[in-house]
Amino acid sequence: MRNIALKLMYVGTAYHGWQIQKNAVSVEETLEKAIATVVGHGVKCVGAGRTDAGVHAEVYIANFHTSSTIPCDRLPLALNTRLPDDIVVTRATEVGGDFNAIGSCLKKEYTYRIYNSRIRNAFFVNRVWFYPKYLDEKVMQSAADRFVGTHDFAAVQTVGTDVRSTVRTVHYFDISRTGDMIECRVCANGFLYNMVRAMVGTCVYAAEGKFPPEAVSDILAGKNRTAAGPTSPPGGLYMTKLWYEEAVL
């Protein structure tokens, strides 16, 4: 059996996240159906991460096993003719049998976008967090700096999530502004459920003066979700970069 890694992108607005759901349409289900029609048998995809409902991916990796002999350079076009317009496969690569899109991923980057303007933009609906109250990105950065490093991130995980450990390593959390658009780029070795969106919400609260940026360290140490900021809306979140040892990107 060949192991094929697909590089794709998708707009998550119409989907209930990546993972297959019983009563809702997911990216995984939609992709698996398209692959099955191309290779002639059912497949199970492994995705790089569980993006939530409404979250987007500018870059995403999924892999599947197949007995098909279709050349990799023909797979993207064949799949894209069977996929909706909001999911696009850009590359297919044959990888080693042990490659796993999530298990082989070394680190990930998510970018959260905030449209910080008094007037909303119709073209950004479900693509950004429209936030009309002015935010000082320098204060946000000061708060973001406290997340960098290896910490217990229980304070920015959705309550009730079942994981073995809430310790993660954040490599960077950079916040920048271009005009009215604020971008929050965070890279880590892994993320907890809603972790990025809660981190962004915490930085926004710091910029609003709800607590000083320095308080983020105490919030993390306290491991209490209610002490941190809100979970920001899903539409502003994008998976933007992935790292692998194999050349799949």
Rank of each mutant, 00 (worst) to 15 (best):
D86H: 12
E208P: 00
R74L: 15
M239C: 11
N189S: 11
Y134A: 12
P233F: 09
A155I: 14
K108R: 15
S165Q: 06
Y112L: 03
V89K: 03
M195F: 05
N189I: 06
R113N: 06
T161L: 05
S104T: 02
F99P: 02
W243E: 11
P71T: 08
T150G: 11
H41S: 13
A207Y: 06
G235Q: 15
T81G: 00
A34K: 09
E183A: 14
C105L: 05
A53G: 13
N23R: 13
G160L: 13
A143K: 07
P76F: 08
H41D: 05
T169R: 10
T51M: 02
K22L: 11
R225K: 13
A101R: 08
I175M: 10
A62T: 14
G236W: 03
S165Y: 03
D73L: 12
T150I: 03
G190C: 11
V128C: 14
T240M: 01
F123D: 02
K107N: 14
V38T: 05
A227P: 01
A144I: 06
L6E: 03
Y134H: 11
G47M: 09
I4D: 10
E246W: 02
G97F: 11
L135E: 07
A122Q: 03
E214V: 10
Q19C: 06
F147C: 07
T166C: 08
V186R: 00
G54W: 05
V39F: 02
D86E: 11
A228S: 15
V156L: 07
A227Q: 15
H171I: 02
P84L: 06
K7R: 15
T37P: 00
G96C: 08
T231E: 09
L106F: 01
R127P: 03
K210C: 14
E245M: 12
P230C: 07
V95K: 01
K241S: 14
T90I: 14
C105G: 05
V170R: 02
L79P: 12
V186D: 01
T231V: 13
K108L: 02
S165G: 04
A154I: 01
G179V: 10
G190R: 09
G201L: 12
L83V: 04
N63K: 07
G201M: 11
F211R: 05
P230Q: 09
R177L: 10
L75V: 10
T240P: 02
Y244V: 12
K210Q: 13
G54P: 04
T93Q: 02
P213Q: 04
V89G: 09
M181S: 00
A207F: 10
